[in-house]
Design a protein around this nucleic acid. Structure first.
Lengths: 128, 128
DNA sequence: CCTTGACCTTCCCGTGACTGGAACCTCTAT
DNA sequence: ATAGAGGTTCCAGTCACGGGAAGGTCAAGG
């Protein structure tokens, strides 16, 4: 498979796939013409990475998860810890965004949104 | 006021304040020795920026909001539009993070987290 | 007067995870 | 022979700063 084939199969852009090789997440073989030649295992790894990224794991987490995946002697506790730490980060981020959303929803609701200059949003930001 | 004074008052790091000058959000005066000399209006603008950033507005949004704040002839509708667009972005991001959280919560719950290699988290990522 | 230490300045590099674009090579079909 | 679709590498830019180097300035103490 060439890069565009595996890109279609995994949903990852070719640029991203090249980047993942650059940082050592995958090591596709090369044809004599220099083209990357992807095996099934490469496609599988890329799909794995795509799903891990879709769950918001960082590249470094992905590297760890991939290594654990390939390690038959792993402890599931190690996987769980990575996932739990990441979940914690997401929950923190959620709390922060919810707080922003609540404040903004309130402010937007207060603002007339007409042609007059008087605006509670700006008043709040300026703490007038 | 020197930069560290206004940093204390606004809660923004000196680095951030210099950066805001760099990109033209503020224009503090200079003393003969080259030090920035902050007026009340500068401190006020920086506090405004700090609060807008805390609500998650991008720097470009902050630039727009600051310009609207200083424009006595603004229409509150223009402010409201910026805030509503931003609110929409936050709500989209929240939905995305909530989806990640739900999936991760489920997976973490399924995983024994012991010394055995069997792991539903990896199974899910690999779509085995 | 000299030194010390805190403060200030500019400048450059690094962050995360790519994306866009340039310049160039290779394959396939006409 | 050529056109077009693919592939390659490399460089720069994104966003909003933060770290750190190299050097100038200021106030206090000896």
């Amino acid at each position: 498979m060439n890069i565009s084939d595996v890109a279609k199969r995994t949903g990852l852009p070719p640029k991203t796939i090249r980047y993942y090789e650059d940082i050592g997440l995958i090591r596709p073989a090369r044809d004599t013409n220099g083209y990357r030649r992807f095996q099934e295992t490469d496609a599988h790894k890329l799909a794995f990475l795509g799903r891990a990224r879709a769950l918001g794991f960082s590249i470094e987490d992905c590297r760890t998860l991939l290594a654990l995946y390939e390690d038959e002697t792993r402890a599931s506790a190690d996987v769980k810890r990575v996932a739990q730490d990441h979940l914690k980060q997401i929950e923190d981020k959620l709390a922060q965004l919810e707080s922003m959303r609540d404040t903004l929803t309130h402010l937007v609701h207060e603002c007339a949104g007409d042609s007059r200059p008087d605006c509670p949003i700006l008043k709040d930001l300026a703490r007038e």
